[in-house]
Design a protein around this nucleic acid. Sequence first.
DNA 1: GTGAATTAGATGTAAATACACTAAATGCCG
DNA 2: CGGCATTTAGTGTATTTACATCTAATTCAC
Lengths: 151, 151
Amino acid sequence: MNIEAELKNTKPMQPRQRAMLNILFTASWLDCFIQRHLRPFGLTHPQYNILRILNGSYPNGLSVLDIKGRMIDRSSNVSRLVEKLRESGYVERVPHKGDRRMVVVTISETGKKLLADLHAAGFVDPKNMPGGNLSEAEATELAELLDKFRG
Amino acid sequence: MNIEAELKNTKPMQPRQRAMLNILFTASWLDCFIQRHLRPFGLTHPQYNILRILNGSYPNGLSVLDIKGRMIDRSSNVSRLVEKLRESGYVERVPHKGDRRMVVVTISETGKKLLADLHAAGFVDPKNMPGGNLSEAEATELAELLDKFRG
DNA sequence: GTGAATTAGATGTAAATACACTAAATGCCG
DNA sequence: CGGCATTTAGTGTATTTACATCTAATTCAC
């Protein structure tokens, strides 16, 4: 269903307005999909995002600001999200040697296990995820247009 | 800046994964932009969305579910958002004649004035909004790829 | 070295959100 | 008509978020 139909918009839209609404709508749709699949694992999307980031940097840890700079949603309150993940045992926090303002956050074995479980449940499997209707070339083009959209 | 650079992602991404992250990232970026510009007017993005919808249907009102079905973020709690807008005087609520379960929500003169002020401040002006780097053809193509992404 | 400015992280607080649930009105089917 | 499922809107509540502010550690200018 195209975006006009989704939003039941009667009046025609300018192409850039149409693209903008479509970005927001598709992201909301996607976020809903992701959250719904994460829920059984007790993770929110931002928490999952942090675990992915830390898994990517493993075995190195990252500071809170490093994590923030890699997050999809830059307005996330990483301190509190990390604290939640630490309570659940998915990450560890150690003071940074050399700069005592910083904290180094590392994914724990439990955290890696959780991601493995998610993977086993087919969560990151492209064929279970949205976007499968796009060819690789179209997906690449979509990403490039989004890069250009942001300027 | 492309999405790999934005997310400081070292490992190469699959095209569909790259598109997906880019949709989420760009939407979050855009939402931040919009919220920042709405803030001086005391509106949140979902509230603004509702006002736009009601302005589009003016002089007809819409039921709460009609509004919900037209919103960008389908998980919005329209009852409470409408109540906020009513407190601010931007919308009116009247019981539906014929089906007393329903409520008909209509934008008020004050609400229309607010949108006019936003417009006057250049808020909807394409040249002040993101996406100006895209040609109309590219914007159209972007919207079509997003439609296809959702299936 | 000393003091101002900056950086990193945490936190206070009001507001918004997600999710489930309630309540009222309507439609449906015997 | 009577009873049950459905539709529509609103609400309870815990969690999350946004935004500003705070504290401690570090850097920088002098």
